[in-house]
Nucleic acid binder design. Structure first.
Lengths: 249, 249
DNA sequence: GGACTTTAAATGTCTGACATTAAATTCGCA
DNA sequence: TGCGAATTTAATGTCAGACATTTAAAGTCC
């Protein structure tokens, strides 16, 4: 592992990249201990703070973990599914909020991906997954629920549907799509009538899942997508009209 | 923004979390300049190296960028789609390589997600996307191609299919699924006969895309998944037999 | 032999300094 | 007055050395 001291990039970035490559390429394996900071600073011919900055970069990506004490040090971390979920959600949320992605585009992507899980979930979902879906539908029908709580319950419903597919890789991929939509969904204010329609569609999906009817779940998701899109359009149109009422003169 | 000096967590991790929250919650907006390292170290009552470690953590996630010079400093970074792609691919690759995810599970997830793009891509794909797919099919049919090059071309083919959907959020989500599979695919050695079958299936998919036949693309992907799964099973079975021939005694 | 103490090795943090970069300012000159 | 070159300045990048803290292992005493 070598670095180029004349490169324009930060030394810490170069060192982090060198170690990251070693991990990705399998030269450093899970739970293996890296050399101590002092040894790394000798090896790369840089100071200890520079090495530390490099290690913090890797720690931020959950690639390593550090442990203090006599037998401590930096260890190659097994990237767990929950860690990966969290990164996925953060990245997706920022991507949507920072790039002026239209609600339409995000919504389309989200439902397209979720439909990918529908046939698998209908076949494999456990009684537990179905019970979670039913419980969330029940919660969503309660009158006093805040918009935020309604959206959170919506996310939980869809999570159960996705997890029902029994494929952790799929669940990981969908985490970003489903959870990152929540801030966008929160922007829509749900009236009682809107909620009732959504709950009814959720019930259709749960019924199809109970009957192990993959096509039914897929169609239910499509209907929900259409409902969500038209709802969002109505809200955005109303907002535009309220903000610029003079254009009608 | 405050931190707790008595918390067991690293100060740099706490500071990074505080700033990250400010960005995610919109209190710091894109291209806004953060206080200088000296000011941050005063504000959080820590030393400059500690602040720097926190900033490097954020830089590793592409949340900030730094600029040297008189008007330099740390700026909130707009997370670009290419940045997000790269993170997605790294995370997905590590997740698969470190968690003993079976080929079957990864393959199922990948094709399920890709089928989600099929109808959209069939409808919206440009002539360019189709041309890329045709070009890659042509490349894949050439005899002298190494396994690595064949797999890379395979990835390029599927990328074109996914990008054809014209939804950047979908492309971003699929980046991990498609690209992270490549190392796993590379583990399979393709014989001439295997390649011919795969190329034929690719051609079916391209034909369906040309005819704007979404169902055809979907079915083509399902056929390709079945082919890939049976191919992998054969390879793994052969390997197991070669490694443990005594078990037949 | 078990409980306690000591030791050592590692990360976590701080101080202060210097190097480097790049924009803003100043100065000199036409 | 206007413009280009030199200077200043403010920021990050890097370094050296020190001390604090944590943790496990080695050693010691009863």
């Amino acid at each position: 592992m070598k670095i180029d001291p004349k490169s324009p990039a930060d030394l810490s970035a170069q060192i982090a990249a060198a170690i990251r490559d070693a991990i990705v390429e399998g030269r450093l394996i899970v739970d293996q201990r890296l050399p101590s900071e002092a040894e790394l600073s000798e090896q790369f011919e840089v100071s200890r703070p520079t090495v530390r900055e490099a290690l913090k970069r890797l720690a931020a990506q959950s690639l390593i973990r550090t442990q203090r004490g006599a037998t401590g040090g930096a260890f190659v971390n097994r990237l767990s599914f929950p860690d990966a979920y969290a990164q996925q959600i953060t990245t997706s949320t920022l991507l949507l909020s920072m790039n002026a992605v239209s609600f339409e585009t995000a919504c389309e992507a989200r439902y397209a991906l979720e439909r990918a899980c529908a046939p698998l979930s209908a076949t494999r979902r456990s009684a537990d997954h179905l019970a979670t879906m039913r419980a969330e539908i029940h919660r969503q029908a309660q009158p006093g629920l805040t918009d935020e709580a309604f959206c959170a319950s919506d996310v939980a419903f869809h999570r159960a549907l996705v997890d029902g597919a029994g494929n952790p890789v799929l669940s990981y991929q969908l985490a970003g799509a489903v959870e990152a939509m929540q801030p966008l969904m929160n922007m829509i204010t749900f009236t009682a009538r809107d909620r009732a329609r959504i709950v009814a569609l959720h019930k259709d999906i749960a019924d199809a899942a109970e009957a192990r009817d993959g096509t039914g779940v897929t169609n239910g998701l499509s209907a929900l997508e259409a409902e969500t899109q038209s709802l969002a359009q109505a809200v955005f149109a109303a907002r535009a009209a309220a903000q610029a009422p003079r254009t009608a003169d």
